[in-house]
Design a binder for these strands. Structure first.
Lengths: 187, 187
DNA sequence: ATTGATATAAACCGATCGGTCAATGTTTAG
DNA sequence: CTAAACATTGACCGATCGGTTTATATCAAT
């Protein structure tokens, strides 16, 4: 398969950028870490920026699929599924090598709103919010969009603080905070 | 004054790093942007890392002083002061050139927990939380530390999302979310 | 007037930056 | 078997990286 080579590269670039940072990881090191020659990388992507955007698209897909799978496996009841989002977050924080969120890091390093990398990060966060809106609506929230925006605040805050403080304790705080908000937003 | 020169440099470096990012802004450009020659910079600081840590310490001081001033100016009632934190956040998001938080960006670019820059960021966020704990205690919260941790989640989430989406709308969401949490945590 | 501290510009260091190029395999399809 | 298509290595490009060095100003205190 010919597309698979490209996908392998993006997958490995994803891990490398997540570990090493975007500006901090040069293309030479990236070629070594991915096992793909620099020439081949530039055969697939016209620039480092292009490659980064591709890794963000892959990560968006992977992360949201994973989140949906975990939430659906953990709970059937709609209200419980809203809470299960925060159980899943806790699982994520627990993973070895957890170092915040690739999109938060991307938007930190590429700060201009009109930059393609910044936009890709914004789109991902928007899609996470849309998913929460669906869960909130299924749970019968008075205002599903509003609850989803509130939970988004908790999610992003939890990611940032889990990277700085104790992930377990932050996950617990996020779960309990979500509980308060969900209780207040459902009949 | 001799220390003032150094402080001027750190102040200007702060703005330059905030606009340009840490890895993305080299020392040559920094010398131009601060108006201080590279030789003088390295006379005051032994490395770029040292300078960055100094800018974070200055920013910690500046930001917390500003926050406390704004909160105290906006409200006298303890409960109202907890909410005023989020009014202040809204003011901050509104400032021209707002681009997320220097500490979140620093921890994104220097991810290792034992890195001095990462630690400085963690300390700042801890101090913000300590300030909220004091406000929560004054407001008579059942569990002041717990409420402060909850509000910290909202604060960090709001900063991240204000950088990605519409700052005004995010500030409003954060305020309203805080309201729900404060109501649930006070007698 | 002289000294010592501090500032400066500018050249310089080896390493690395993002990106290209030419030459040489290695696959794969006709 | 052959030829086009793709991957690879490794040298190469000018620019910039963090940091140093040298030599020249500036200035306050003796």
């Amino acid at each position: 398969m010919s597309t698979s080579k490209r996908d392998d590269l993006v997958q490995k670039a994803l891990q490398a950028f997540y570990r090493g940072g975007f500006h901090a990881l040069g293309m030479d090191k990236l070629a070594v870490e991915t096992g793909v020659s620099k020439t081949s990388i530039y055969n697939h992507f016209s620039s480092k920026e292009d490659l980064i955007v591709a890794t963000l698209r892959l990560r968006d897909d992977q992360f949201r699929s994973w989140l949906i799978r975990r939430v659906e496996a953990r709970a059937r009841d709609p209200r419980a599924r809203l809470l299960a989002v925060f159980d899943a977050l806790g699982e994520w924080f627990h993973e070895p090598g957890f170092k915040s969120c690739l999109f938060i890091k991307a938007s930190s390093e590429y700060q201009e709103r009109d930059h393609p990398i910044h936009s890709a990060a914004a789109e991902h966060k928007q899609l996470i919010q849309v998913y929460c809106t669906g869960l909130a609506r299924a749970a019968g929230a008075y205002d599903a969009e509003n609850l989803a925006r509130q939970l988004s605040l908790i999610i992003e805050g939890a990611i940032v603080l889990a990277h700085l403080h104790d992930p377990d304790s932050v996950a617990k705080d996020a779960y309990e905070t979500a509980q308060v908000l969900i209780d207040a937003a459902l009949p």
